[in-house]
Write a protein that binds this DNA or RNA. Structure first.
Lengths: 225, 225
DNA sequence: GTCTGTTTGAAACATACGTTTGAAGGCCTG
DNA sequence: CAGGCCTTCAAACGTATGTTTCAAACAGAC
């Protein structure tokens, strides 16, 4: 119990604090005092603050990427031969994320926010770590997207994938704040699962949108509906 | 020339560094050495680091919100009575942003990234500053969006606006890098205006997407096209 | 029980930060 | 050219950070 208890307590506290405040804004002293362990424990068990950040991500991301691979396997098997549709691909991703075993009730939302922060806060070391550690499931997801949108030119698909990434990373990175605002303003409670259920159709519709608009509608707007 | 030169040099350096690295990750010493001014100049001219952050935003946002108000005025006048369409509203916004006089070639993309950071990094003071300083044009944009999407529930609209914000802020914030990647990979040159021309239809299609999906299509994907 | 390797503990380390100070410099008004 | 005001400058302040140190506590094996 000795080691694993301390290590897990640090990871739990770090995960939560990073998600709340970002990486640079969270000090090791905040983490160790929340985890009720000695300050030196972080450097003893992980080596450095950056390595702790990596460990926080790895604890979730490694099982998740395995789950995701399985989901993609099943999806491709079900479609035997046929490439999966865009909706199926997006759902395989979100389903895998939502179905992950969660340490507590906040589990998934905390991690979504961390992923958003990883993309947003330019922590060079983190991006490098994620790229070289999880490039395979990411590349596979890209391949599926390409097969699901054969009608798009490479350039259009490129930009629309960026738009999807942006909407997702941005929303998830501030999901807690957004959920709070929504509850205060409209008195509605929301879960991350519900956000995902709203996000996927939005993304799918955007990916399948009519062509790039060439001339701004200065005197007569071209309706989309 | 004495004061204004120092003040502007600080603002230029701060703007660029904040956009590159975020707020907490950028020190006053980085800013002052990039601007080639004395360290104390920031606290002398602005009072504090937080006030400098506010000034960086105000320098762009104040003229922009004026331009935007004019654009909305013209739009509503053109539509006399009729609420502007979603496309028209989105175009009024992006046109105003793109048409702003820019200090340098990076102008617009730097500021988009800053806006994204303002939303993402939980800088309480910044959000408070922006809310109480620019609530009017923001509220007007929201009102126009509401009138352009009467078919959406408040909650659906809220989330889809977040998705739009995310796709925009994220894409624009890294537009330089993305443009470079695209040129290297596919040999295609792009401008920020072209990105906007691709982004607006994507956003409009997302806003007008069919309802929130309640059940994941586990064995037969519901196509959107 | 004693020894060995691992884990914790309190304290200190060096460094970086935002901010303040007080003297020196420059510029315009009289 | 003298005085006053705004600006710059080098230096220091106090505080907070990530990391290191080394002794104490602990565990399990013999």
């Amino acid at each position: 119990m000795a080691q694993s208890d301390t290590v897990d307590r640090i990871l739990d506290a770090a995960e939560e604090l990073f998600a709340e405040r970002g990486f640079s804004e969270t000090s090791l002293r905040m983490i160790t005092s929340k985890a009720k362990v000695n300050l030196a424990a972080v450097n003893y068990h992980f080596g450095s603050k950056n390595a702790l950040i990596h460990a926080v991500f790895a604890r979730f991301l490694t099982p998740f990427s395995a789950t995701l691979e399985t989901a993609f396997d099943e999806l491709e098997e079900r479609c035997d031969g046929q490439p999966p549709t865009l909706n199926q691909t997006l759902w395989a991703l979100t389903e895998s994320a939502v179905r992950m075993p969660q340490r507590n009730e906040k589990g998934i939302s905390i991690f979504m926010r961390l992923l958003g922060l990883a993309y947003t806060q330019s922590q060079g070391h983190l991006r490098k770590f994620l790229e070289q550690e999880y490039s395979e499931p990411f590349g596979r997801f890209m391949r599926l997207l390409k097969e699901a949108t054969p009608e798009l030119s490479s350039v259009d698909r490129y930009w629309r994938i960026q738009f999807m990434l942006g909407a997702t990373a941005f929303t998830m990175s501030s999901s807690d704040a957004l959920i709070d605002i929504l509850e205060n303003k409209l008195g509605v409670e929301t879960t991350v699962q519900e956000i995902a259920a709203r996000l996927v159709p939005f993304l799918a519709a955007g990916m399948k949108a009519p062509d790039k608009m060439l001339v701004p509608p200065t005197n007569s707007g071209v309706s989309v509906a």
